[in-house]
Amino acid sequence: MICKISPIFLFSENEIFDLVNNFHSSGNTVVKGNRNEIKFFKTDSFSFNIKSFQKPILINKIIYSYFRKSKAARSFEYGMVLLEKGIGTPKPIAYIENFDWIGLTDSYYICEHVTFDFMFRDLVETENFPDLENILRQFTRFSFNLHEKGIEFLDHSPGNTLIKKAPNGNYDFFLVDLNRMRFHQDMSFDMRMENLCKLVTSNEMIAIMSYEYAKLYNKSYDETSAKWNLYTTVFQQKHYKKRKFKLFLKKLIK
């Protein structure tokens, strides 16, 4: 067993072990997908989330033990990097990995619970969302700051940003689902635009965000908008083909 605890928090290893050991019998489920499960826990003075990652298949048991860090370890380490760079994310508390004689059996990531008002996905799915243009412009500045700091968040998609309205009318953004990132000395214009292609499909929203990004990056609006739309179209086409192939396989198996 491996347990790593953030120096920011005063949890002991035994406290972390108890939390994980009681994961399946306590806490409130926030997300339960086919692969991972997230639960919310609350003590008298503190609220936190625990993410239980899918038990790895045989080959991944070996890979995550000897060749690559587990998703829990990467979530923890990338979360610490984001905090160091001043990027919003729920504060990492700890991660735990369990092993058998073959390799990794299960893993857990524990982080501070952040209260939020809505997710970026709500902007995409809700018609006439209040203060939409202002939020999009602020979010674009947030994304530009990520890129300026060399952070390529590979899962920069609608479900992975929590948004909280601050008392001054501004918005705070918190990245979640952190286990896929790359860090660079510098990000090219194409890398930046490709990194944003999963967020929105609306031409109007892309136009607002392109205008804001172009100002920040000192590019023309036309060039920024054209590149953003190009990468969005390519991503949507790949996504459609992938879904179509999965449906074909399901029908084939049946």
Results as ranks from 00 to 15, higher is better:
C3N: 12
N36G: 09
V124M: 03
E194T: 08
S157L: 03
N36A: 10
C197G: 04
Q237H: 12
D106N: 15
Y66W: 09
L216T: 05
Q138F: 02
R137D: 06
L247Y: 13
L82M: 14
V234G: 01
G27V: 07
Y217C: 06
K164Y: 01
D172E: 15
K69Y: 13
Y64F: 15
D190R: 10
E13S: 12
L249Q: 04
T224L: 02
D18A: 09
K238M: 15
F116T: 08
N134F: 12
Y108F: 15
K85C: 03
D18V: 03
V200D: 00
Y213D: 01
T233Q: 08
H113C: 15
L58H: 04
K42G: 06
W101L: 12
T89L: 01
K246P: 01
E37C: 08
L247R: 13
F248G: 00
H24T: 12
E125M: 08
N160M: 09
F23Y: 12
L104Y: 00
Y211T: 01
S52R: 07
Q54D: 04
I62Y: 10
S52D: 05
G103M: 01
N145A: 06
I2M: 15
S52G: 08
L104S: 02
I110A: 07
I206V: 08
L216E: 07
N22F: 04
N60C: 08
M80P: 05
E194W: 06
K149G: 03
G79Q: 01
T140N: 02
K241P: 09
F144Q: 02
F118K: 05
T89Q: 02
E194C: 10
L252N: 13
A73S: 14
S225W: 14
S12W: 05
L104F: 01
L196N: 02
Q54E: 10
R74H: 07
T115G: 09
I2N: 15
N34E: 12
G169T: 11
N14W: 04
K219G: 02
K85M: 03
V200M: 09
D190E: 15
E77G: 06
R68T: 14
I135Y: 01
I38Y: 06
N195S: 07
I93S: 11
S70R: 07
